[in-house]
């Protein structure tokens, strides 16, 4: 346990910052230790989209109605206009409206 009084809180913050910097640099650093073959490239390429999907899955499958409709609206907007910003703005608006009901 670290007491927050007397600057201890800032040491805790510094620890969090260092841990986060470690993972920001870590992915590229670990990759640089291994030669990159076709399987490694396949792994990286497939992982990229999967990370995005994995972030979305709990919201899409287990989220509240407002959150789900926000994603649906964004998807519809992307298919219609193929431009992210209006699609995102509309999605957020739908979430706010549904939740205010």
């Amino acid at each position: 346990m670290i007491a927050v009084e007397g600057g201890g809180g800032l040491w805790l913050v510094a620890g969090m910052a260092l841990a986060t910097l470690l993972v920001r640099f870590g992915g590229v650093f670990i990759m640089s230790l291994f030669p990159l073959g076709p399987r490694g490239e396949g792994f990286i390429n497939a992982m990229a989209g999967s990370v995005l999907v994995a972030v979305l899955v709990p919201i899409a499958l287990e989220g509240d109605l407002g959150g789900r409709l926000a994603l649906l609206t964004t998807a519809g907007g992307m298919l219609l206009w193929a431009r992210p910003m209006p699609a995102i703005a509309l999605g957020v608006l739908v979430a706010a409206l549904v939740r205010s009901l």
Partner: peptide
Amino acid sequence: NARMLLMGATLY
């Protein structure tokens, strides 16, 4: 933040 490991790796 461990997801950042994967994110960084994809940029490698």
